[in-house]
Amino acid sequence: MKLIFALFLFLTISSASVVDEYLNTLTKEAKIENPSFSGFDLKRGEEIFTSKHIGKKGKEVSCVSCHGEDFSKTSKNFFTAKEIEPLSPKANPKRFSEVKTIEKWLRRNFNDVYNREGTTQEKGDVVTYIINK
């Protein structure tokens, strides 16, 4: 039991550091791209996540279409009905625990919803929104 707890704690701490590290990297990039960069913003992130757009498939969707409104619950892929595990790292420690995976899903999902990749600012904003919600 102690071991499980320790493991859980370790995973929680390490996943927190992975996403913090990722946001630090994005911050550095953003400062280079935009000298007047003033940080990532949760409110802007929420707008990015919840606003609807004509996506790659030609249908009007938002990130909510697949991930739902409650990040602590499982949701369903809008197009395939496949179950999606909770998005919140608080509910699902596997989330935001690997930079490669974070980047893969940001690339894919911006393309799916916005029909283009996200900017550094947008990626930082939306990640800030998700991990703090």
């Binding site: 790659k56 498939k57 030609g58 197009f79 490669k100 893969k104 690339r107 894919r108 999902n109 393309n111 799916d112």
Partner: peptide, 12 residues
Amino acid sequence: LENHFGSDASLA
């Protein structure tokens, strides 16, 4: 895979 049935499924 970049346009996998209308979705981006690209891989590393």
